[in-house]
Design a protein around this nucleic acid. Sequence first.
DNA 1: TTACCCATGTAATAAGTTACATGATTTG
DNA 2: CAAATCATGTAACTTATTACATGGGTAA
Lengths: 179, 179
Amino acid sequence: MSLPHAILTALLEKPSSGLELTRRFDKSIGFFWPATHQQIYRELGRLEASGHIRALQPSGPVRGQKKEYEVLSEGRAELARWTAEGDAPRAVREPLLLRLRAAAVVGTDGLAAELQRHLTLHRAQLDDYLEIERHDFPVEAADGENRLQHAVLRAGIGLEAFWVQWLAETIEALPSDRP
Amino acid sequence: MSLPHAILTALLEKPSSGLELTRRFDKSIGFFWPATHQQIYRELGRLEASGHIRALQPSGPVRGQKKEYEVLSEGRAELARWTAEGDAPRAVREPLLLRLRAAAVVGTDGLAAELQRHLTLHRAQLDDYLEIERHDFPVEAADGENRLQHAVLRAGIGLEAFWVQWLAETIEALPSDRP
DNA sequence: TTACCCATGTAATAAGTTACATGATTTG
DNA sequence: CAAATCATGTAACTTATTACATGGGTAA
């Protein structure tokens, strides 16, 4: 039940249409909770039906017409409630790790290339995050209003840095490297 | 499509019944791909139907009777195929990070306690992993047959260590800490 | 013999993915 | 006006979660 709350957060930061939300997800909240435009439209419909948000232009819902949404007080209350709520940390669910376990049984063919490919991807993502940090959280304005957003970005940076390091180590230690 | 391959890997390591698989998932493969017994039974049924595995006791499938499965050569081939296959790294999807973003908008009530709770959980998981490492991968037998399994465990250790550090930093920097 | 655990399963729901459909607006 | 793009949606399918059902064995 996280997607509706991710959407409420995004809409509180700035009222938007479905497609605008999709774009913003692709480069912000979606780093930690990806969603396609189909999911977002479906969820916007539900949030509107439950009175958490409303469309700004009350004109007839014509297909192909942009529809902006804003959060109502009920939506804000629901988001505050959810924010204080607790849950267990999410498990990892990374298929690459399963592939390593499988490779221990059926052989490591193709594994080195796959690890290398992931390393490249994670390095690129890490660079993206660091660029965002340089741009949005410059050192001279350290820790102002947006301490929380910065903490979230730091999590992304830390996770990518971990993967980069682990992949490099694991590639190094792979049997095929030592004939 | 990872669960069937996780099950094939587990069954190759050791033929098991559904409930035994569930138990083993809870303390091994399931760290990186959790599954409930319902998921596992369903998937075992599919794998049997598609000829990848077979039940050992061919007696009538009586409800409540233990049923052991083993992997057939088709299943091993399928697992090898999948292992060499590639896919994109999984996104993070951690609701706690969404809560931080939400808290930046609706307030940080309850957030510190939740971060503290996660810190405790991640510390415990890290300790569990380190204990497993001490037990299963002692330094004197460094890097033998099970280099790959060790790499997977190292990933778990690295991820938990990251969360412990990030949570400690973030709790420290939380506004409510400085009145 | 009741209660508990082992073991396998069904059903319903929610969430996520993939493919496709449709209208409006801009641009060559 | 044809093609591309913006924008909103439907439909079908797969995966994951939650709750419940059923039967067998064992021990208080």
